[in-house]
Design a protein around this nucleic acid. Structure first.
Length: 420
RNA sequence: GGAGGGAUGGCCGAGUGGACGAAGGCGGCGGUCUUGAAAACCGCUUUCCGGGUUACCGGAACGGGGGUUCGAAUCCCUCUCCCUCCGCCA
């Protein structure tokens, strides 16, 4: 959520930057409602002032044992008027807030302006696309033939877009989770968190998933609860409605969680394999930062995700998303894309974003520079480090052998009981 | 699942319709005293919104929301969270 006052004072700027994102924001309604609300609020406050004064008089009269009936009748009339005004103000306020919630974050000045993924900027590339002296298979074929992925039985148990990992496959998934968590916690200064996998509607609103993207979520029937689409939700909301001591910043958290997404509207896209599942595992990184250093934190976080791929020896590149391709809450986003032989191209495996104070304002997360200082909103950053299922698919494809077997990346072998 | 109890400022804790933005204590800040410190004593000590250059003025806030009332921390409804006991369960 943007600052209402900022939007009112910088209408053209907001319209221009959201237009860069390909979103036409009409602020007329927002401005009109805000002004109307302000006028009514002033009126209501003046009336309250009058009522407070006469109430005080009533109180005096009673103490002096004088008759206050006329005063009370008067005050009642004022009270009715206030009630009417307040009803109207409440309605206006809801609409103002709703309008504000539907405005996306403003892109940072370093973000290239563009329409879609074609306009993204490749920042750097690590490793060269894997070369094979045989025809490489897609990971779902590799995994199915090895008996470590079972899509058919998963479809029986639940439905499409689910997977059963079996034997070494399950072991690989678990090994990757541990490998990633160990790297982030032991070497990169993240604190490990194991949060709830279900979050309430207030939390989802704090991160920007609600109200606009309710259709992407799985909701629990009979509860205002949702399966988390990413650990970003519980991690960001960890400090919701708090004023934290500035001394704890930058606060770096990381968490392994499963993620649940309805993938509504993606029918026919990536239906095979592990790429687009209703349930997948992810290790998520989260940073609460001082506003002054959040973009440096973004570089650090992105480097942490890259380190995972470097150690696994998977070729990848870093892409700076253009204005049109960024997520709703983000100010600047780097995607990490790994080489996928089956597509003869790159595939997103991580997304690292600086949300600035956008989420912090929605979720009301503030900090104090000094104990006596005024609270300011923190900046929040989140990034995958990494999507585990996609990492499995990248390993199966890039490390496959002519005989259909898969060699384990060396750094992963200790996590696989030495299995090569 | 059943039965009770609770939520008040940075913290503890009083407050059952009007003088309460809220006693008292702790903590914090300033001062007196002291070579310095401690103790003692005195004073100050919430946040947000609107208006005025400043002193200031107005409004709001006692877990959230709604209601009763001229007036609500206080009465009613509702939601959330916490605690105790019973039952059940990993």
């Amino acid at each position: 959520m943007l600052d209402a006052k900022f939007v009112l004072e910088n209408k053209d700027f907001v319209v221009k930057l959201t237009a860069d994102r390909g979103i036409a924001v009409n602020l007329d309604e927002f401005v009109r409602l805000s002004e109307e609300k302000k006028t009514l609020l002033k009126k209501s406050e003046d009336l309250r002032c009058a009522r407070n004064k006469s109430s005080e008089l009533v109180s005096q009269y009673k103490r002096d044992k004088k008759d206050a009936a006329a005063l009370i009748a008067d005050a009642k009339k004022i009270g009715d008027e206030i009630q009417q005004l307040d009803d109207e103000i409440r309605r206006l306020d809801d609409r103002v807030r709703f309008a504000l919630l539907n405005i996306p974050n403003l892109p940072h000045e370093s973000v290239p302006v563009g329409k879609d993924s074609a306009d993204n900027m490749i920042v750097r590339t690590w490793g060269a696309p894997t070369v094979f002296d045989f025809a490489p298979q897609a990971h779902w074929d590799v995994g199915t033939r090895l008996g470590i992925l079972d899509f058919d039985r998963a479809a029986k148990i639940t439905g499409s877009r689910f997977t059963v990992y079996l034997g070494a496959g399950a072991r690989l998934e678990r090994a990757l989770i541990n490998f990633m968590l160990d790297l982030h916690t032991k070497e990169r200064g993240f604190c490990e968190v194991l949060p709830p996998f279900i979050a309430n509607d207030v939390s989802l609103t704090g991160t920007g998933n609600l109200p606009k993207f309710a259709g992407d979520l799985f909701k629990l029937e009979g509860y205002p609860w949702y399966l988390i689409p990413t650990a970003e939700v519980p991690l960001t909301n960890y400090y919701r409605d708090e004023v934290v001591d500035g001394g704890i910043l930058p606060r770096r958290l990381c968490a392994y969680t499963p993620c649940f997404r309805s993938e509504a509207g993606s029918y026919g896209k990536d239906i095979r394999g592990l790429i687009r599942q209703h349930q997948f595992n992810k290790v998520e990184m989260m940073v609460f930062s001082q506003p002054d250093s959040s973009f440096e934190e973004l570089e650090w976080m992105t480097a942490s995700a890259e380190e995972v791929l470097k150690r696994l020896g998977i070729p990848y590149r870093v892409v700076l998303l253009c204005t049109g391709d960024m997520g709703f809450a983000s100010q600047k986003t780097y995607d990490l894309e790994v080489w996928m032989p089956s597509r003869n191209g790159y595939m997103e495996i991580s997304s690292c974003s600086n949300c600035g104070d956008f989420q912090a304002r929605r979720a009301n997360i503030r900090f104090k520079r000094e104990p006596k200082a005024k609270p300011e909103f923190v900046h929040t950053l989140n990034g995958s480090g990494l999507a585990v299922g996609r990492t499995v698919s990248a390993i199966l494809e890039n490390y496959q052998q002519a005989d259909g077997s898969v060699v384990m990346p060396e750094r992963l072998r200790p996590y696989m009981d030495g299995l090569a």
